[in-house]
Design a protein around this nucleic acid. Structure first.
Lengths: 180, 180
DNA sequence: GGCAGATGTATCGCACCGATATGATGGACA
DNA sequence: TGTCCATCATATCGGTGCGATACATCTGCC
């Protein structure tokens, strides 16, 4: 996931780790954090794989700070990102991945967008059904607090399904527009 | 966290891994999963630390299945759980921990409950404020999908704050009742 | 008779987090 | 002028947890 996000962000402009992390936070907001403990090792891995390269180091004298390492996408890196974008498999609708994929939706092909949205919806609906059954059937063994937890969870899933329906409807409207 | 959950569940009854996992799912619903890849190693760790012990193995002939390992709490294990319950530190209001702690609220002391609830509220409020600023200020650099993501996040945090307020109010009402 | 699905324990590699170390720069405040 | 804090910047390490996979038996259904 972080690989995907880094590759996507570097399409905007070459960046160094610290900057990348700030943009990541701005982009993903509530959904995901990504700590430096993951970022820097990943950066090195991506470099090793050839998806990104370190730009010529800045003149240390003109930039008095600790030397920054600015990374840039390679042609292979762009290709790699395109591959990842085109992927719409089951892990795509996981809690963790979905937000990241959505954040790069403007760059992903329309029909992939639809598949991700619908897959995510199915996933959330399943969770919702699970919560509904436990709430109605296992009412005895569950104390007040746990029930409260489940009610909150149910509310969230219902809300997310509605939200996804709106997004899907919007996609369909755009689709119709394109067809005309 | 899993340690905490296991210790808590074993207060109900001695259980083996598979059963533990089912109860875990029932208990935590949408909030947390816990895979076997974490469960079994943790079980062994808890045994090594002396918090749990393996009950006398069942008669293999009477129970034709693969031998099940039923675990039981030790006195030290109960103590350990009490310690974990009494903890209301900052990690307690993390997304991951909070649900698990709430699930065992009926066993946690009233004033610890309050501290956790209020800490969680503060945490969620901070996230809410962060989302509000990015949504209003950085409106230019954010595309439609990312904005949608943030709007959804903001909505969720607002909702959770309201929910927490209700829980806190309920706690206070109970507190007043006890005082009378 | 056969096969899917639940029951059950277990391992391995991987992704990510949180704490921590290190150190320079810029601005605020006394 | 001195000092102290926030921000900028890179990096490592231990630990937690996930997902895939393996293996084996038992139950129910067609």
């Amino acid at each position: 996931m972080l690989e995907f996000a880094i590759l996507g962000l570097l399409h905007e402009a070459p960046m160094h780790g610290y900057e990348l992390r700030k943009r990541l936070h701005e982009l993903l907001g509530a959904f995901r954090a990504f700590s430096y403990g993951t970022l820097y090792p990943t950066l090195r891995r991506l470099q090793r794989e050839g998806w990104i390269v370190e730009e010529a180091p800045e003149d240390v004298r003109s930039w008095g700070r600790r030397a920054r390492k600015v990374y840039e996408l390679t042609a292979e890196g762009k290709e790699r990102f395109a591959d990842l974008l085109a992927n719409a498999g089951p892990q795509t609708w996981d809690d963790d991945s979905f937000g990241v994929h959505l954040a790069f939706f403007s760059r992903t092909p329309a029909e992939i967008r639809m598949r991700i949205l619908e897959g995510r919806r199915r996933r959330v609906e399943e969770r919702r059904e699970g919560l509904r059954t436990t709430l109605s059937s296992a009412g005895e063994r569950i104390d007040r607090y746990t029930r409260e937890l489940h009610r909150m969870g149910l509310d969230s899933t219902e809300r997310e399904v509605r939200w996804l329906n709106e997004l899907i409807a919007h996609e369909q409207a755009e689709q119709r527009e394109r067809d005309e």
